[in-house]
Design a binder for these strands. Structure first.
Lengths: 262, 262
DNA sequence: CCATCTTTGTGCACGCGTTCACAAAGACAT
DNA sequence: ATGTCTTTGTGAACGCGTGCACAAAGATGG
C-alpha cells in the first residue's frame, strides 16, 4: 500500500494497537458491503477473507473492541458496522479543508467518498488569486489569506495538504496554528508538527520506488544474467563519483506543482 | 499516512528489511535536495533530521546496504544517492501504465514526478470508448481492449489502477495475466493476486478514518463530557439493531467513479 | 607518531505485532 | 438434559523493528 507513517511510535490509543486501528476501516468496508447484501451474520473466516487478512488477526483485532461475536455463529453484521463506526468516530461529522487546488486537489474535491463516511469538504483553499471564487466540485475556491478564518468558522480539525512541496510546511504551520490537529499530507515533504498533531502522508513516488525495488529483485532472481542485476557487484571500492551521470536527470523534485507527491 | 500494506509479510528481500526499503526513498529525496545544493557530505544526524527519522535508525538502515560512510566525517552525498538509486532500481527505466483515466487517473498522468525518477508513463488505458484517442497529459488514451497488447509491446511490469472499485479486480487480473508483477492500487478494494505479484494500495478514505479515530480520542480526553465520548458505555447488552439509523446514509461505497479510493 | 575528537557501525535488549493452537462458549439436535 | 459441533476469544511463543549505548575507525592537529 501507499502510506508512510508519521504518527508517534508506540502510542496505544485507549488500548487499541495502532496496527488494529489501521485495519478497522478495512473491516468496515467489507462489513458495509455485506450489510448492503442484507447478510445478517458473518464468521471471522469469511470476513477475514473479504478484508484480505487472516482470521486470527481479525479476531484479535475485534477482541480489543470487546466481545461482539457469538461463538458457534459469528458476528452480527449490522451491530459490528455500528461498533466500528463509533470506534473510528464516523458517527459524527468531520469538516475537512483541502489546501492546494491543483490537479490533485481538484480530484480530491471531486471525490465522492468524502461525504459517504462522515467527512465533509468544508472549504477549498488555494494561493492563486486567479482561482478565488472559481467553483471546483461545486465549492468555490477561497484564497489562502482567509485560511485562519475558514478553519475557525467551520470548526475544522482535519486538513488535507495538496500543495507543492515548497509550500507544504508553511501551510501546515498555519493550519496547526489555526487549530487543525490532524493532517493528511500529499506533498512530497517531511512535515514538522508540534506534539499532539497527527500527520499521515500519501506519497505516490515512494510507493512506486518500493515496487521498483521488489520488481528489480524479482528480475535479478529469475535471470542472474551478467553480473547479477540487483546485486552490489562493486565492494567498498566502488567508483566514488559514479553518480554524476545519474544525478543529472533528477530535476527540482521538491518543487513540482500541486499535482501529486513526488 | 495513506498506505496499506499488501505485500507478503516477512519477506526479507536480499536481507534488506521491508521497513528499511520503505525509508530508502525518504533518504533519497533528502539526499537529492542536498546534492542540488552541492553539499559534499552529510552526517547521519543531519540526514536523519531531514528525513524525519532518528539517526540510529538511519545508520542501521544504511548498514544493510553496506559500509558507505566514513567515521568522523559522515556520508558522501553523491555516492549515497547513487547507491540508493541503484538499490531501489531507479537507474533503469520503468514503463508504467495507468488504467482508469477519471479524475484521479488524469491527475496521476499529469504528475511530473513520474519521469523524474525512472518512471515513465507508457500508456493510459480507459474502458470508456469516448475517451479513446483523447489526449491526457499529452498521451492519447487507449481502450481497455488493447490492454494485453500494450503491456506486452512496452514491456510493462508496473501497473497503476485508478478505476472504480467494481472494475479493479478484473483489471488487475488482466494486468497480471499480461505480465504485470507490481500493482499500485488506488481503488477501494482488496485485490487478490497470485504469489509473486506485489500490490501496494493508496487509500484516502482509510487514511481519513485513521485520523478521525485519533481526532476523536483527543477530543474525548480533553473534554470527558457526557458519557465519555469515545468509550463503549454499553457492555455486551447493547442495542443489537442500533445501527439502522447509521447505515442509511452509507451509499454504494464500492461503486464510486474513478476518482479516488473510498 | 601519538593523542584527541568526531562519527559510524552494531550488539543487545525491549516492545509491538503476528500467528498458532486450544480451551471456553454457545447453538443445535436428539 | 446431554452430547456434539462450530466458532469465538485469548494465552503464549516467536519474529521483526526500534532505540540505546558503546566500541571501533578514521580524521585532524600537534
Amino acid at each position: 500500500m501507499a502510506t508512510g507513517r508519521t504518527h508517534r511510535p508506540a502510542t496505544r490509543s485507549r488500548g487499541i494497537p495502532e496496527a488494529t486501528v489501521a485495519r478497522l476501516p478495512l473491516y468496515l468496508r467489507a462489513l458495509t458491503a455485506l450489510s448492503e447484501r442484507s447478510v445478517p451474520t458473518v464468521s471471522s473466516e469469511e470476513l477475514a477473507a473479504a478484508a484480505g487478512v487472516n482470521s486470527a488477526k481479525l479476531r484479535k483485532d475485534f477482541s480489543y473492541l470487546g466481545s461482539y461475536g457469538t461463538r458457534g455463529v459469528g458476528y452480527d453484521v449490522e451491530y459490528l458496522v455500528y461498533q466500528i463506526s463509533r470506534e473510528l468516530g464516523l458517527t459524527q461529522d468531520w469538516p475537512v479543508v483541502i489546501v492546494g487546488i491543483g490537479n490533485l486537489g481538484a480530484a480530491l474535491a471531486n471525490y465522492g467518498g468524502f461525504a459517504s463516511r462522515g467527512f465533509r469538504v468544508a472549504a477549498l483553499i488555494d494561493a492563486d488569486p486567479a482561482m478565488a471564487g472559481k467553483p471546483v466540485a461545486g465549492i468555490p475556491v477561497q484564497h489562502t489569506d482567509d485560511l485562519e478564518k475558514i478553519i475557525k468558522d467551520n470548526g475544522v480539525s482535519i486538513g488535507v495538504i495538496a500543495t507543492p512541496a515548497g509550500a507544504a510546511q508553511q501551510v501546515c504551520d498555519r493550519l496547526v496554528a489555526a487549530g487543525v490537529t490532524s493532517i493528511l499530507n500529499f506533498a512530497p515533504t517531511v512535515l514538522t508538527v508540534p506534539d499532539g498533531v497527527d500527520v499521515r502522508k500519501v506519497d505516490l513516488s515512494i510507493e512506486l520506488q518500493i515496487l521498483a525495488f521488489h520488481e528489480q529483485r524479482k528480475a535479478g532472481e529469475e535471470a542472474p544474467m551478467e553480473t547479477a542485476v540487483g546485486e552490489g557487484a562493486l565492494p567498498a571500492s566502488a567508483p566514488r563519483g559514479a553518480a554524476a551521470d545519474d544525478s543529472a536527470d533528477q530535476g527540482p523534485d521538491g518543487d513540482v506543482p500541486a499535482v501529486m507527491p513526488a
